[in-house]
Amino acid sequence: MYPRQTTQTVLRALDEQAAVVLLGPRQVGKTTLALAIAEERAANYLDLEREADRAVLGEADLYLDEQAGKLVILDEVQQMPGLFATLRGQIDARRRKGLRTGQFLLLGSASNVLLNQSAESLAGRVRYVEMPPLQVDEVGADRLNDLWLRGGFPDSFQAASDRASLTWREDFLRTYLERDIPALGPRIPVATLRRFWTMLAHTQGGLLNAAALAEGLGVSGQTVGRYLDLLVDLMLVRRLMPWHENVGKRLVKSPKVYVRDSGLVHALLGLGTLEALLGHPVVGGSWEGFCVEALIAAAPAGTEPYFYRTSAGAELDLILRMPNGEVWAIEIKRTTAPKLSRGFHNASEDIKASRKILIYAGTREVPAGEETRAMPLATAIALLRGL
């Protein structure tokens, strides 16, 4: 097991709040993390995809009354949406007895479903933590290219070979398309959704063009929006919104779209080796998406991510607006030569950036002109973790 940064985040949250919701796609390591926490604390674990465990909660209040003082871990909690009202009553009753924190750890793989289910019932009683795939500082900077190629799902990253890793990711995609997505309710032809996902991989990091996607799939723009919402909800795709605060500038208003795990990008495109990836047109978009996800995951809780682009050519790959009000301007390039365009500096001035960073493929942090630092991805992650 690799030590996960999310573990400490969850433990702190349990020490401060009655309930914690741990969000993340399937197979990202949520259950492994929860069971590790259960070994450190008095806890009971239930997997609500198992009929027997759901039956235990047939009389939920009776069961949960017996568990007072213990951490109750409920996996795939979105399977029992009616449970949230019961949890609210339990939390309030325990508060009256002086039990205020560390009562429930809820795991789920559909963010909007869980947020909607819990928002009303558990308002003021819950904290949300998102668990990303494995990160560079968890596996070591010497495994950077492996992590980029294979992605951060633990079973994919730790596979015995690149071929075995690719096979795991192909099986993962098939399971999502054939079982997990239909289980959420939407009836979408498997072949259509697979094609849509693959089209997103081909245009990794590009502006959303719903009309072009709709034409390619033979569906309406509204249907494309529904497909995209579904993959975003499952935390498999990111919709990165444009910065919108510069009055008088002609800003791009469409979001950028990324398949969030680089390994899934490569599986959708059939790229099983680093050599195949480096020779493919998606290499730049893949590297950008890999870095964007890593930087957002490392940023402090409450950080807001954006990108910036104007019709005049000013552009930033990533903007991080920190909880303390600082604005970081970040450019990402798969190059060993730390050079920046005039458009980067113009964009940084437009947004009044507090810090300007170039993520590049070199191994050292060096100046890149006009108060800009060029640095490897691992250095930038360490900088964000230290905030």
Score class of each variant (00 low, 15 high):
Tyr128Trp: 12
Ala93Asn: 12
Asn44Val: 15
Ala119Asn: 15
Val139Gln: 03
Ala55Gly: 08
Tyr128Gly: 00
Gly151Thr: 03
Pro154Arg: 03
Val77Glu: 02
Asn116Cys: 08
Val77Tyr: 01
Gly140Thr: 09
Arg125Lys: 04
Leu64Ile: 00
Gly102Met: 05
Asn112Tyr: 13
Gly124Asn: 07
Asp92Glu: 15
Gln103Met: 12
Leu147Ile: 02
Val77Phe: 00
Ala68Lys: 10
Ala110Cys: 13
Val113Gly: 01
Gln135Thr: 13
Leu105Asn: 06
Glu120Asp: 13
Leu122Ile: 10
Ala55Asn: 15
Phe157Ser: 10
Gln158Pro: 05
Gln135Cys: 08
Glu76Met: 08
Val56Tyr: 12
Glu138Asp: 06
Arg54His: 06
Glu120Phe: 06
Arg88Tyr: 00
Asp146His: 02
Arg143Gln: 14
Gln78Cys: 02
Ala119Leu: 11
Gln117Ser: 14
Asp142Pro: 05
Ala119Met: 13
Asp47Leu: 04
Glu59Lys: 12
Arg95His: 13
Gly140His: 03
Thr86Asp: 09
Phe153Ala: 04
Pro132Lys: 05
Glu138Tyr: 00
Leu83Asn: 06
Val77Ser: 01
Gly140Cys: 06
Ala85Tyr: 01
Arg54Val: 11
Ser118Asp: 10
Phe84Arg: 05
Gly69Ser: 08
Leu134Lys: 09
Arg143Met: 13
Gly102Pro: 07
Val72Leu: 10
Leu149Gly: 04
Asp47Ser: 15
Leu115Glu: 15
Gln117Leu: 14
Ile73Met: 03
Gln67Met: 14
Leu149His: 11
Arg54Pro: 00
Ala119Pro: 04
Gln103Gly: 11
Ala93Met: 07
Leu74Tyr: 01
Gly58Phe: 07
Pro81Met: 07
Arg127His: 12
Arg95Met: 14
Ile73Cys: 02
Arg54Glu: 03
Glu51Phe: 09
Lys97Trp: 01
Glu66Thr: 13
Ala85Ser: 14
Gln78Val: 04
Met131Pro: 07
Gly98Gln: 08
Tyr63Pro: 00
Arg125Asp: 06
Leu83Met: 08
Phe157Glu: 11
Leu122Val: 11
Glu120Val: 13
Ser121Ile: 15
Ala85Met: 08
Phe104Arg: 01
Ala119Thr: 12
Gly152Arg: 14
Glu130Leu: 07
Gln135Ile: 03
Gly69Asn: 05
Gln158Asn: 15
Leu115Thr: 12
Ala93Lys: 11
Leu149Thr: 09
Glu66Ala: 10
Asp53Met: 01
Arg100Gln: 05
Glu51Ala: 14
Ala60Thr: 08
Glu40Cys: 02
Tyr63Gln: 01
Arg150Ser: 13
